[in-house]
Amino acid sequence: MLTARQEKLMKTEGLDVYSLDVRQSLMKGRTESDFEAMLQADALVFNFPLYVFCLPGILMRFLQDYYAYWTQRQDGVGGSRIYAVVNCGFPEADINREAIRVIGSFSRNTNNVFRFGVMIGGGGMLLGAQGTPFVRKTMSELNKAFSLMAEDIIKSREDVVENISVALNFPRKLYFFMGNKGWVSMAKTNGLKKKDLYCKPYSNL
């Protein structure tokens, strides 16, 4: 949903937006045509959730395959402006910093220009409580970050822009309390009890 929000804002700013779903690209065998579209793009924006403090494995594979494709071209193509938007399930947005660094490294190794990342803290709560007052302010900050990204693309700015942190203004202890309640509720929905969440199925191996 955050991706759709960003797309809508960027289209409003006058940008032509083409969306690419990494999972669908890999499963339907259309990576080559998608890679070619990426090579021709003026800017690339990678949107993904944080996974084990870095990129999801499927995205890592996609980027590795893209790098191999780019290397085979041998024509030095590059110069696209690259951005990253990372959302994590922790309240602290800065936990996304390592994932942003990986995208920056990918950018340099493919002859592109990494501009900046938007690091989002709050995960599911940000999406599930959009109508509440404390989330509205965060969503407003997020809109500003997306607007800055659109402006950076349109104006081809060259000044340094630091990574942007956007996080919920919400008590940390209460955040984790609500998150744990969510796990218990999900367990019950799947016919499990709270104690089942602490099982170690491989402990005897």
Rank of each mutant, 00 (worst) to 15 (best):
P171C: 05
K181W: 13
E92M: 07
P49R: 07
V77G: 13
N96M: 02
V102N: 07
P201N: 10
F176Q: 12
C54E: 06
T189R: 15
M119I: 06
I164C: 03
M149T: 13
P133D: 15
S203G: 06
Q130P: 02
M1D: 01
V86Q: 03
Q64T: 12
K188Q: 11
M149A: 03
K11Y: 07
M178K: 00
I58G: 03
E13T: 02
K28R: 07
F114G: 02
K11A: 07
L63V: 02
R5N: 03
V77Q: 12
I100P: 00
E92K: 11
K137F: 06
F62D: 06
G124Y: 08
K137V: 07
K193L: 06
R101W: 08
V135M: 00
Y18L: 11
V135L: 01
G124A: 10
L205G: 15
N190A: 10
Q64L: 08
Y67N: 07
S33Y: 05
K155P: 04
M27S: 11
N163E: 09
N204I: 10
I153A: 05
M119F: 04
A129S: 14
K155C: 11
F106T: 09
Q64C: 06
V22I: 12
L9D: 00
G182H: 07
K11I: 07
G117H: 03
F46V: 07
K200Q: 14
S165E: 14
G191N: 14
L2G: 01
E162W: 08
F146G: 00
Q6L: 04
R30A: 11
Y69L: 09
G124T: 02
P91F: 01
M186R: 08
V161M: 11
M27R: 12
A4I: 01
Y198I: 01
I164A: 06
L26G: 01
L44E: 00
F35H: 14
E98K: 02
F62M: 13
D34W: 01
G79T: 15
G124K: 04
R108Y: 11
N109W: 10
F90M: 06
V17R: 06
K144G: 00
D42E: 15
K193P: 02
T71P: 01
Y51H: 15
M38A: 14
N47Y: 04
A187E: 13
L2T: 04
F177E: 13
D34K: 05
D42Q: 15
T31C: 14
K8Y: 04
Q6Y: 05
F46H: 03
V102H: 11
M119K: 08
P91M: 05
P171A: 12
Q130W: 03
T3R: 03
S19T: 09
M178I: 13
S140D: 08
C88R: 00
Q130G: 01
P171L: 11
D34L: 01
L9C: 01
N109L: 07
G117I: 10
V22W: 04
E92Q: 15
R108N: 09
